[in-house]
Design a protein around this nucleic acid. Structure first.
Length: 298
DNA sequence: GGACAGGAAGTCC
DNA sequence: GGACTTCCTGTC
């Protein structure tokens, strides 16, 4: 993999990464793991993470340009976020090995070949998946947007304003503001999460290093966090790729394709990626004809 | 047109 | 196992 950097016409820094395999920006940002990046154009996604507004442009299947970011910041933050520090071919081989000649997984791995499991911020992931319960993706996005606008720091970019994801402290200092979000019963869950995170009662960095069952226990001390939300936080926010969230879609998949049962504890270190392939495959079929027009299978 | 049931990356009691 | 906030969709 290669990376070069420079300046855009307007003066903003960029980093251009080449030699990518198994990366499709559309599949990665629209597979339901991440709610704050919006598609602004074909193969272009923009949004705020780590307190920074950035734009991702995949102009070629093997190439991604990250705008608004210099080389040092890429190496420190975005490389890890995008999992460009990971040998994805080897990861996929591990998943394939755990599924043997399973035809469903083979199809799902082809269908969503460009999906990467992003490494997002733990606290943001916790709040996002608390809000996701019993909810649909467009509304989840809106709720998170309203949450950021209410509590987050404004981030200016090219004359427009986005908002950083709020800190737990900011929310805990004024939890009454949560009532304005129209998040329903989930508002008090967020308040509890903010209080526990701000007070140190919940230490997400510690959870990231703890054994899986302990991490799950720690996360489940937050009201509104059960096994499914905990697994999502572990998978998307704590870098625990072995976590396998089971939601209504996954129950559907398991019943439909694995009527004899699938031992979720035997799927290896990247079970969570297998879960994401199946999830994306099933969702895609529900939405209509397969094929995203993306770069995944390139 | 507008009412209404059903459902949405679940969890609580 | 029913209730839960809010919102959106499909149906009549």
């Amino acid at each position: 993999m290669t990376a070069e950097n420079g300046r855009l016409p307007g003066g903003a820094p960029y980093v251009r990464v080449g030699g990518l395999e198994f990366f499709d920006i559309g599949q990665t940002f629209d597979c339901g793991q991440c709610f704050r990046f919006v598609k602004t154009d074909e193969n272009v996604y923009a949004g705020t993470a780590f307190g920074k507004y950035v734009r991702f442009v995949q102009d070629r299947p093997d190439m991604l340009t990250i705008e608004g970011v210099d080389r040092a910041e890429y190496e420190r933050v975005w490389k890890r976020f995008l999992t460009f520090d990971t040998d994805w071919k080897a990861v996929r081989a591990d998943v394939a090995a755990h599924f043997g000649d399973d035809g469903v997984m083979r199809e799902a791995m082809t269908y969503g070949a460009g999906i990467r499991i992003l490494r997002q911020e733990p606290w943001e992931t916790l709040c996002s998946f608390i809000l996701s319960q019993n909810n649909n993706i467009p509304r989840i996005r809106r709720l998170i947007g309203a949450f950021c606008e209410r509590y987050g720091e404004p981030i200016e970019h090219g004359g427009a304003v986005d908002f950083a994801f709020p800190t737990a402290e900011a929310v805990d200092a004024d939890p009454s503001g949560l009532e304005t979000l129209r998040a329903g019963y989930r508002a008090r869950y967020l308040a509890d999460a903010a209080h526990k995170a701000a007070s140190g009662e919940l230490d997400l960095d510690l959870a990231a290093r703890a054994p899986a069952h302990q991490a799950e226990e720690m996360l489940c001390t937050v009201k509104g966090v059960g096994p499914k939300v905990a697994a999502c936080v572990m998978l998307y926010g704590l870098g625990r790729t072995e976590a396998f969230p089971v939601d209504v879609w996954m129950k559907r998949v398991l019943a439909e394709y694995y009527p004899a049962g699938l031992d979720l504890s035997s799927l290896g270190s990247f079970a969570g990626l297998a879960q994401q392939y199946l999830f994306y495959y099933e969702r895609g079929k529900a939405k209509g004809p397969a094929g995203t027009g993306g770069f995944g299978t390139a």
